[in-house]
Design a binder for these strands. Sequence first.
DNA 1: CTGTATCCCGTGCGATACTG
DNA 2: CAGTATCGCACGGGATACAG
Lengths: 118, 118
Amino acid sequence: MKNKIINSETVQMCGVDYAFKRIGGKYKGRILWHLHSKTVLRYGELSRTLPDITTKMLTQTLRELEEDKLITREVYHVVPPKVEYSLSSTGMELIPFIKHLHNWGNEQLEKENATCEN
Amino acid sequence: MKNKIINSETVQMCGVDYAFKRIGGKYKGRILWHLHSKTVLRYGELSRTLPDITTKMLTQTLRELEEDKLITREVYHVVPPKVEYSLSSTGMELIPFIKHLHNWGNEQLEKENATCEN
DNA sequence: CTGTATCCCGTGCGATACTG
DNA sequence: CAGTATCGCACGGGATACAG
C-alpha cells in the first residue's frame, strides 16, 4: 500500500526526493549500514544491535526496505523460526554513500563534543 | 535547542544516525541539492524552484540547516530586503553524497516508470 | 522581498500486550 | 524466535493571514 498517488500536475519528482523517501526514515540508514557491516543478520541480531528500536518499528522498517527492494528477506521454515536479512544489489549500491555519510557524521560528532560514547 | 539528551546507557550515537538527523528532513536534501547546482540563491529563487514548499517550511528548514552549519545566510540591509543562501564548507562535503543519491534516485525512477521530469 | 504567527490535522512513532 | 495488534500522542508539516 505504499502510496504512489502523485498529484500529477504539481509534482516534479526529482531523484533526491525519491531517494530520501526510500532511505530517509528514522532508522533506515542505520539498518542499511548495519546490514553492510555484517552482510547477513537475523531479526534478533538486528534488534540487539539497535536496542532503541521497538519491534514494531523494526519490523515496519524492514518491510518497507524490502518492498523498495533494498534488502532481501529469507525465511527458513524451521523451529524455532529463522529469518535472515541482507542487502539486495540495489541496496548495496547505496553503501558507498552511506559510508561517506557515516564518516562525515563521525567527524561532525568529534567537532561538536568529545563526550560521545561510541 | 536541538536535543542532545542521550540516554547514556543505551545509545550508541553513530555517524549515520547523526547525519540523517541533519539532512533527513522532508526538504533538506532537495534544498542542499539546489544550492549546489546554483551556488547562491535568494529566498525567492529557492521558493520558486521548490514551489511545493510553503514559506513556513522553507524558512524553518533553512533555519535548521543554518543552525547545523550546513548553509550560510547573508542578509543585505537594503530595500527591498535581500537574503542569500549558500552552502558552507561543511555542507559542501555532503554534495558528493547527495549527487550520487540524485543519480541513484533517477535510475530507480527510470526503472519504475519513464514519466519523470527533472 | 523575506519572512512570522496561528491554527489545525495526519501520521510517524512509542508503549504495551499478545501469537504461531 | 520473529513477529502482530492496539492504542494513543507528540510533532512534522499544511493553509492561511499578517508584518517589516
